[in-house]
Design a protein around this nucleic acid. Structure first.
Lengths: 235, 235
DNA sequence: CTACTCTGTCAGCGAGTTCTCAGCCTAACC
DNA sequence: GGTTAGGCTGAGAACTCGCTGACAGAGTAG
């Protein structure tokens, strides 16, 4: 994940979620501001002119509609990534994602959030050199099309398999513990066993290995998993 | 082990463990502060602004979650290394290793703790002069990938073999007694015989010697073992 | 409603790892 | 050269960890 230095404004009233996002996005290389309500959101956005806003649609004072309308009326056409709880009525959200906007339901995985932000920035800032292709060794991922190729052959992945593979590729040649994988790839309120990581690695390998020359996902016993690149990788 | 002068705050209620960590980390070149509960942790962290916090997730007053939340809400985004007992439910720990954070289960080895702290500092401080490569003589260790090379040829080590070799290399050209090795490389509650060090040195030599020109791990009879570098070492 | 996909749990297997021990080897000191 | 304490190593028992197939439940499409 590249250090873009782009500025993100987080608008989220739940403290724990707000802080989770702040920490993660700072670590991912963004300059991060965070506020807890719609009024502050408009004020801060006006002053700091962020490159993107991550906006909870259910806020104590205004809802997402109101905040966005205010912003637009002030001639700020910053792209917005809306967050909404799964049980909120969908019509709250309908019609919001105009232009470069996007939305996702809570709870989500942190890695997914980062990926979406990058995708939005990629689309809204054409000058920007950031590629939508993630290519590591024998595997390439078209992040716009959500398609995965092993040595040019497309393979079919479930959503979780896709996120896991993307995470490992983004951290290629670095061992990731099961705890780290769980924290980044699974939804932040996931409450299950780490064994699920093993299961999904197994699923992934079953789809990848028949098409690859090397064992791309390596197990480091007692430590974690690693996506490995090899010296003589050409495609 | 380089003397970075970085500041570590230890938060751990068990006195014996707290003192062990304090002593070892001071010796490893850190400036160390130590407190026994979450309330003090927040107070001290605010004042002393440590570079990293080592935090037991099970504390008498608050749990790790609460402490971290308090810290974040005070705009301290210091990285955290969480400690948890092996028998604690795993979901206590889930969602913690965001950003540059990490966690490890008790009991652990001191050397492993130090290595993790260095790894976290390496990643979260981008100005970062510290390399993830540990190279001594004919052997190099890629600490991110957990991979070991003897004159460029990769060798496969078990976790304990890896920790032992890293410890000896970090203390190259200095004799380490079996007692010292046990104290640093094995988990702090290890209760067995020193003979195990001999066994593991034997395992290591069997894997290393066929690929090296010199006898890298030397026995100092009656004293201990030493990882030796030689004048005409190149690479 | 049915069929299908996807997620998450689990149990059993097998391989890798840890640790101990006994017998052998060797360095060092006489 | 003999003695001895310390070190080396192969064998093996006990254990741990990761892999995988089976399956149940949720969700979704037809």
């Amino acid at each position: 994940m590249s250090k873009t230095g782009k500025r993100v404004l987080i608008v989220e009233d739940t403290e724990s979620v707000r802080e989770l996002l702040t920490k993660q996005l700072k670590f991912a290389g963004f300059e991060v501001g965070a506020v807890a309500n719609g009024t502050d959101a408009v004020l801060v956005a006006e002053k700091s002119k962020p490159d993107i806003i991550v906006l909870d649609v259910m806020l104590p004072d205004h809802d997402g509609f109101t905040v966005v309308k205010k912003l637009r009326s002030m001639n700020l056409d910053v792209p917005v990534l809306f967050l909404s709880a799964k049980d909120e009525p969908e019509n709250k959200v309908m019609g919001l994602t105009v232009g470069g906007d996007d939305y996702m339901t809570k709870p989500f995985s942190i890695d997914e959030l980062t990926a979406r932000i990058h995708a939005i920035l990629r689309r809204s800032q054409k000058d920007d050199a950031e590629a939508s292709m993630l290519e590591v060794g024998e595997i390439s991922i078209d992040q716009d099309a959500h398609e995965v190729f092993v040595n040019g052959t497309p393979i079919d992945l479930s959503p979780t398999e896709y996120k896991l593979l993307r995470f490992l590729m983004n951290n290629a040649n670095r061992v990731m513990s099961k705890a780290q994988i769980l924290d980044h790839v699974w939804e932040y309120d996931f409450n299950g066993e780490m064994g699920i990581v093993e299961s999904y690695v197994s699923y992934l390998r079953k789809k990848i290995d028949p098409l690859s020359k090397n064992e791309l996902i390596q197990t480091k016993r007692g430590v974690g998993y690693m996506f490995r690149t090899f010296k003589n990788d050409e495609e």
